[in-house]
Design a protein around this nucleic acid. Structure first.
Length: 417
RNA sequence: GUGAGUGUAGCUCAGAUGGUUAGAGCACUGGGUUGUGGCCCCAGAGGCCGAGGGUUCAAGUCCCUUCACUCACCCCA
């Protein structure tokens, strides 16, 4: 038997109920915040990701699905959404159409990592970006939207953490301070962190090893080194969040995996997903568009992991809404002919209708209706055919009545399914 | 890439120290009810015991290899 490849999952119909619900709910929220949907390719030139995500990041170093096409060009399955969105934004000069562009994208991302709970090689993200505004009010609005997305989906029990990584200037200064501090305590760090010291010192801040944590507690923190502009930006954000009554905690140790972030970064975490605790993550990237050869346009965005939302909903015992189903049972050839037209009429009236295709016993038909979780079963037999009647059986209440077949449509409409 | 755990029916799992034809519950099909689902009863179907090799008179069980899944590390949504 050929099986799906590792980390690539089939989303079966039972599961789709959750997905539809999450996506539909999200789209409504996006609409109310003025976002528009964008769909872009899942394959891009490899260079795009090298230039945006950062050559020294784990994503680029070991997690990308990179191939050569038949012409020998290097192409990559997108490991995240932002790079492609910006590419499209620049390619189509969207910034000339409006000063602020709000976009969202829903689709699969690909990273070659070892799968585990809440982490897969093909995974789906709901991604949103605001391009063209640097004021912290936008950062606050985004966080409010994230909160509303999660609330409307029905996920509570999460924590919103924020931090500021400063701009090029102040972060550079901070990193120097951090490195010199850590160099002095080098022998207390784990081997991973000693390696990180040269590659990505910020990463050391969220190391989980006991010894490192001790050192980190005494380490200088980025928030003390922000320049005036960045510092004001961050405190304005906090003021807005206070005014909007959005609970958050400042986590100066929070670091993000992509190089392009500046100033505001944030993460929504839960304790209910095991090790993969981030449900939403994002941040500001004010330099990225310019670095890609575009105009100097600030931006901020985030991504939510759909699989993780599904896990949380399941963990809560959430039951997605199911459209009530009407099942049409019939007995005998003549009744079946009548049933076929009845089904057609009901469907034209937008009811969800299933019928029996065989000429099985009524018992077998009811059994199938039961399995399909039908709310009503319409039964047409020889007697009903002769009297122009239909039996309508309520499967939950386990009672039934006969009504004239001409009234059936109105009767069901009144039920308001 | 590293580590640990687990692979027996569609699903969840039993099968001490190797010993005849490998079991249960749920699900499935049919019947008990010739036109009435769920509950109950009866019957049936369904397994190269993840794959390959080895030890042995004998392997689901022991050994080796390999593959897959799960969780964790790394990292991340």
């Amino acid at each position: 038997m050929i099986k799906a490849i590792r980390g690539f999952n089939d989303i079966l119909p039972d599961e789709i109920k959750f997905w539809e619900y999450i996506i539909d709910t999200s789209k409504k929220v996006f609409k109310s915040f003025g976002y528009k949907e964008i769909i872009i390719p899942i394959l891009e030139k490899t260079d795009l990701f090298l230039r945006t995500i950062g050559e020294a990041t784990d994503i680029v170093e070991k997690e990308m699905y990179t191939f050569s096409d038949k012409k020998g060009n290097s192409i990559t399955l997108r490991p995240e959404a932002t790079a492609g969105i910006i590419r499209a934004y620049l390619e189509h000069n969207l910034y000339t159409k409006e000063t602020i562009t709000k976009l969202y994208l829903i689709g699969p991302m690909f990273r070659y990592e070892r799968p585990q709970k809440g982490r897969y090689r093909q995974f789906y993200q709901i991604d949103a970006e605001v391009l063209g505004e640097e004021r912290p009010l936008v950062d606050a609005e985004i966080l409010v939207m994230v909160r509303q997305l999660l609330n409307n989906i029905g996920i509570d029990d999460v924590q919103i953490e924020i931090n500021s990584l400063g701009c090029k200037k102040c972060r550079g200064l901070y990193i120097k301070k951090l490195i010199s501090f850590l160099e002095g305590r080098k022998d207390e760090l784990c081997s991973d962190c000693r390696r990180r010291l040269n590659i990505n010192p910020l990463r050391i801040l969220d190391c989980k090893v006991e010894g490192c944590r001790k050192v980190i507690q005494e380490a200088p923190i980025i928030l003390d080194y922000l320049c005036n502009e960045c510092s004001n930006h961050f405190s304005d954000l906090k003021t807005y969040l206070g005014q909007l009554e959005l609970p958050f905690i400042v986590n100066p140790l929070m670091v993000r995996g992509l190089d392009y972030y500046t100033r505001t970064t944030f993460e929504v975490t839960t304790k209910k997903l095991g090790s993969q605790n981030a449900v939403v993550a994002g941040g500001r990237y004010d330099n990225l568009i310019k670095e890609l050869g575009g105009p100097d346009i600030p931006a901020i965005g985030f991504a939510m992991g759909i699989e993780r939302l599904v896990l949380l909903l399941k963990e809560k015992g959430f039951k997605p809404y199911i459209t009530p189903l009407i099942f049409v049972a019939s007995l005998g050839e003549d009744a079946k002919k009548e049933a076929i037209n009845l089904v057609k009429n009901l469907r034209e009236a937008s009811f969800s209708v299933e019928m029996d295709y065989s000429l099985k016993s009524l018992k077998a038909q009811l059994k199938r209706a039961d399995k399909l979780n039908a709310k009503y079963v319409l039964i047409i037999g020889e007697d009903e055919l002769a009297n122009e009647e239909i039996i309508i059986r309520d499967m939950e209440k386990a009672n039934q009545e006969k009504i004239k077949k001409d009234y059936i449509l109105n009767y069901l409409k009144e039920k308001n399914l």
